[in-house]
Design a protein around this nucleic acid. Structure first.
Lengths: 157, 157
DNA sequence: CTTCGCGCCAAATATTATTTGGTAAATCAA
DNA sequence: TTGATTTACCAAATAATATTTGGCGCGAAG
């Protein structure tokens, strides 16, 4: 359940389409891939139960829901040991504004993506909930000025 | 069409639910927010047409589709002028493996998220298609070792 | 106070998903 | 190679779900 799954040309087509538009009807999907609805649905269900498709999500316009500030934050921990990493990731998991947390190579240890209402809210969040996580040594914020690309379609062959 | 939209408590509930699970049926959604199906659907449609909900996407398991390497890349351009930025973003837009491109504050100018099959494919991509974009001065890759959080639910009040 | 517009509901209808039963092609063991 | 078995497919019936309709009640504006 962790390794690559065998996917034929049609499966890949389905995945591309559903990544770009999860709301397509089964009949339309069937037509686009050149099969009838029944086997199309079977394939989609199989992709779901096998875990190739993890979930389906609505994508929002951040401005319109009043979330004006997005940032990436590069974090260095005080020590790179397992305990500290666990303390850090558990602290992170409780903070809704941190929507991504990746362990990365390079000068820092982690990179976070954070979303807040405005700069004031962002500052408050950082000061009161993030900066004071005990194992954090250093943080550098990169504020997103504009986003040119934010594709939900991965480059599958 | 660019500013915050008025959303009541029920709209916010709908948005939270659809971000977490876009495949919920209208009847279930109606029940969870405490309305009947008809006005529930009306609200969802209104959120869609007003652009609060931009789109719906399937989220895939990268391992299972054979995409083993994800990275963040911090890019510095040779000049921070408008022309160079345009040249850069247009070059970027043609490369499917670059799924995100944000203009950011800080030492670099842009941060990219890139997905590839493996390290070899990643190296090839960078050497042949990214590094040689003329306006690029410097790039630093951060390879994602593991992801602890990747939420599709934004922190709306 | 009354009228309008909005948001809601229940129930009818339309659309879509899902199941069913059966056929043909691909796979494999003998 | 052949016969058995599985797999993938299709058309059409059925079940589930979305969507429309008509009407009610409430709050705001005149």
């Amino acid at each position: 359940m962790k390794d690559k799954v065998k996917l034929d040309r049609i499966d890949l087509k389905i995945l591309k389409i559903l990544q770009a538009n999860a709301k397509i009807t089964n009949a339309q999907l069937a037509q686009e891939i050149g099969l009838s609805p029944a086997p199309t649905l079977e394939r989609v269900k199989k992709l779901e139960t096998s875990g190739v498709i993890k979930s389906y999500h609505a994508k929002l316009n951040t401005q319109k829901v009043g979330l004006g500030v997005s940032t990436f934050v590069m974090v260095t921990l005080k020590g790179h040991n397992k305990d500290n990493i666990e303390i850090f990731t558990e602290s992170i998991s409780e903070i809704d504004e941190i929507i991504e947390c990746h362990h990365v190579t390079g000068s820092g240890d982690f990179i976070l993506k954070i979303i807040a209402e405005d700069i004031a809210a962002y500052q408050k969040l950082m000061l009161e909930r993030v900066t004071n996580i005990e194992v954090v040594d250093n943080m550098q914020s990169l504020v997103i000025l504009s986003t040119f690309k934010d594709s939900k379609v991965m480059p599958i062959p």
